[in-house]
């Protein structure tokens, strides 16, 4: 062993050569892994750069009017992003409105109420469902949900809300079946397993001692959930919800089939609309002319900026949770 600590010059030549080659292969491997890590960074920078480059002609032509313009007309080459941005934000917001309470309800059910033998299978089922590709939700929405919604639910909604000011404009007829509301509901079903899986994981990081102490004071199950578990898990739940929102904002296939791809803003939620991702998916391969293609890339750039802000916020919240729980647990 002492030999190894000697300066290389006094080592037998064969051993010195072996040590040098170890050193070289060591350095090579280190550079290789560092290069791969740089590549991840370069992909990210490449996405921003290529989207910016592709979007530049549209931004230059339309200026800030691109964000607020409501006309999307390939024939006259007038493009405004507002209807697509509006559709993206409204569908995602509605989807979150449904999915967050229901998702948290499922997580409460799984951690507190579900009979023990069922807990694992139901939990695993939810996690598996989170991995189902979105195109499945898309074709189910198109073939099953939209026709059912059009024939059974929408006429009833329109009738029920007809006399209530406010709601009557939000839910004005005719019943198309496809539209912003349908797309939102399908989105909410799609992000549901995601929210429940994350929330359940976060609930399980709550130390049992805290809950037991609250129960010991005579709290009801609901009081323990509301006053102990939820405050403790807040940043994790919010972070998980933000991740789900990031998905909802950029979701393409579940929305494209049922949104109707109409570039206008109507106050009725039952009317067809469009989202950024649905517009790109529907029109990109058929887009003729540089300005048309550039406008599609430009709305992609806007989508990237929106999701970046949401996902970055989600990261920060989940990171603070990890720091508190003392490890980078998944």
């Amino acid at each position: 062993m002492a030999d190894v600590a000697l300066p290389p010059s006094r080592l037998p030549p064969s051993l010195a050569a072996a040590l040098r080659s170890f050193g070289r292969s060591d350095a090579r491997f280190r550079w290789l892994t560092l290069g791969a890590a740089w590549l991840v960074l370069l992909i990210f920078i490449g996405i921003i750069a290529s989207l910016w480059q592709g979007a530049w002609p549209a931004f230059r032509t339309f200026g800030f009017g691109f964000f607020s313009g409501t006309v999307w007309n390939p024939v006259t080459e007038k493009f405004g992003a507002f209807p697509a941005i509006y559709g993206t934000l409204v569908t995602s917001a509605l989807a979150m409105l449904v999915a967050v309470p229901v998702g948290i309800g499922i997580a409460i059910f799984l951690t507190e109420l579900c009979p023990r033998p069922l807990r694992r299978p139901v939990g695993i089922a939810i996690e598996l469902l989170a991995g189902i590709p979105s195109i499945i939700y898309g074709i189910w929405g198109l073939f099953v949900f939209a026709p059912f919604f059009q024939q059974s639910v929408e006429p009833w909604i329109i009738g029920a809300f007809a006399d209530i000011p406010g709601l009557s404009t939000l839910f004005a007829g005719p019943p198309y079946g496809i539209g912003i509301f349908t797309a939102s509901l399908i989105l909410s079903i799609m992000i549901l397993p995601f929210i429940s899986a994350v929330t359940r994981d976060v609930f399980e990081t709550v130390p049992p001692m805290l809950k037991e102490a609250a129960y010991g004071l005579g709290c009801t199950t609901w009081e323990v959930m509301w006053s102990v578990v939820l405050p403790f898990a807040r940043s994790g739940v919010v972070g998980g919800a933000m991740l789900a929102l990031g998905r909802a904002l950029g979701e393409t296939m579940a929305v494209t089939f049922v949104i109707g791809n109409a570039h206008h803003i109507v106050t009725s939620l039952l009317a067809p609309g469009t989202t950024i991702s649905a517009t790109i998916a529907n029109e990109f391969t058929e887009a003729l002319g540089d300005l048309y293609v550039s406008s599609l890339v430009a709305i992609g750039m806007i989508l990237f900026l929106i999701t970046f802000v949401v996902l970055a916020a989600a990261q920060l919240m989940l990171r603070s949770l990890e720091a508190r729980s003392g490890g980078r647990s998944q």
Binding site: L51, S277, L303, T307
Partner: peptide, 18 residues
């Protein structure tokens, strides 16, 4: 982690441009 949840359609646009 951003790339992990970035909209996949934007990855498509990126590779299209690249």
């Amino acid at each position: 982690d951003i790339l992990l949840s970035a909209p996949s359609i934007l990855i498509g646009l990126f590779i299209y441009e690249l």
